[in-house]
Design a protein around this nucleic acid. Structure first.
Lengths: 216, 216
DNA sequence: ACTTCAATTCTTCAAGTGTGCAATAGGGGG
DNA sequence: CCCCCTATTGCACACTTGAAGAATTGAAGT
């Protein structure tokens, strides 16, 4: 009755952790939170279920780590656009807004992922903390770009502007990700730039230079 | 060995269906999608689990019906504000926007509920259909209010305006619902009215009359 | 080559999952 | 008042779930 044991390789700790986390994220994205069972995660990571508990104290801890991982990546994606500091303030802001309203940021999978964790944001204090942090980092980034515009506004107005622009961007991101076929190509981007421009009193549509980088 | 049977009352079909649906919604709101098990739903509805399958062909069908129910209620809530047709177009629009950015529409529970179904929106065609329908009803409502403003704009601009305003409202609704403590009292409302006004080129803040109805 | 130790697998467990179905009892129609 | 219909219960089934721990393996150190 000696069933043969599956051969395996030892991997560096962080490699395995990352494989498990990314397997968990994939599953949540594809099948919602309930699809991310320990067994499914293990299988997708090419490993047996017990191993999860070797790297994480519980499944919940793995889930928390996954959320942190996801948000870190999103933050990094956003910051990436700012590395190119060329152009006037309007162009830089337009580039930032555009990045949030185009693939790969606009993406049904990401929306599903994000929604899958939203309940945790409300119930688990640690997850909530990560959420708030990510939100504020993004908004501060936006606010600093807005502050660079050639306008003279009070700090209160600046804050209100940042919150409002963040709102439009989030709302459009959500709708474009949820039901892309409802909008024409480039429509959401055009509407977003126009709206943010209207809120701030600048012409972002004209300031926007379409393809700073990207595939042909 | 005759175990005694729990006493029960027979109820009208629609009463029971509604009780089961509202139990399911409560559970999703409180504990996320995974909390809505047949047993938990039945218990909350004061009934045994087997009965669910008497009224619904499967648990999935109950979930779908629950989503439809939820969205119908939200649509009805929104339409309610429009029954009062008094005031100029600006005031009516402002009242509509305000309704979406204040309790009970802004509410962590509703956000949780909404997020709990979002995965279904992407995977289940029937749920997606309900989602799209609800979204379009809301946006058309908004668009008709915008069309009443004393401005002359092209149909394309009107559509773009409606999408943009819907975006701000959705985004702010989400953020205010997710982390209310990040904003001061009334701040989101003020920002929302200002932003929508800026997009449309009208002064909604001044047009807004604070309390059309509501508690003292 | 031998030991040692951590990494990984495998087995087990108790609880919980949706579904199918026979038995029962509540209550309206005769 | 009784009878019948069916709404409702209760339970069994086949699976899945997260967790725990014992057993086995690979590789690094000497």
């Amino acid at each position: 009755m000696t069933t043969e044991r599956r051969p395996y390789r030892r991997e560096a700790e962080d490699l395995r952790r990352e494989a498990l986390i990314s397997a968990a994220l994939d599953l949540v994205a594809e099948g919602g939170p309930k699809a991310a069972t320990v067994r499914a995660i293990a299988e997708k990571a090419g490993v047996t279920a017990g191993l999860i508990r070797h790297y994480f104290n519980s499944k919940d801890e793995l889930v928390r780590e996954s959320y942190r991982h996801l948000m870190d990546r999103m933050t990094a994606d956003n910051a990436l656009v700012l590395e190119d500091a060329s152009g006037n303030p309007e162009a830089r802001l337009a580039r930032f807004v555009a990045a949030s309203l185009l693939p790969p940021v606009v993406d049904p999978t990401r929306l599903g992922l994000w929604a899958g964790f939203l309940h945790g944001v409300q119930k688990d204090p640690q997850i909530r903390k990560v959420h708030v942090h990510t939100y504020l980092v993004y908004r501060d980034l936006l606010q600093s770009l807005i502050a660079d515009l050639p306008r003279a506004v009070s700090p209160e107005t600046l804050r209100a502007n940042a919150i409002a622009c963040n709102g439009v961007i989030d709302g459009l991101w959500m709708e474009a990700s949820a039901v892309p076929e409802m909008f024409e190509d480039g429509e959401i981007l055009r509407i977003g730039l126009t709206a943010v421009g209207a809120i701030l009193g600048v012409d972002l549509l004209r300031a926007h230079v379409p393809h700073p980088e990207g595939p042909t």
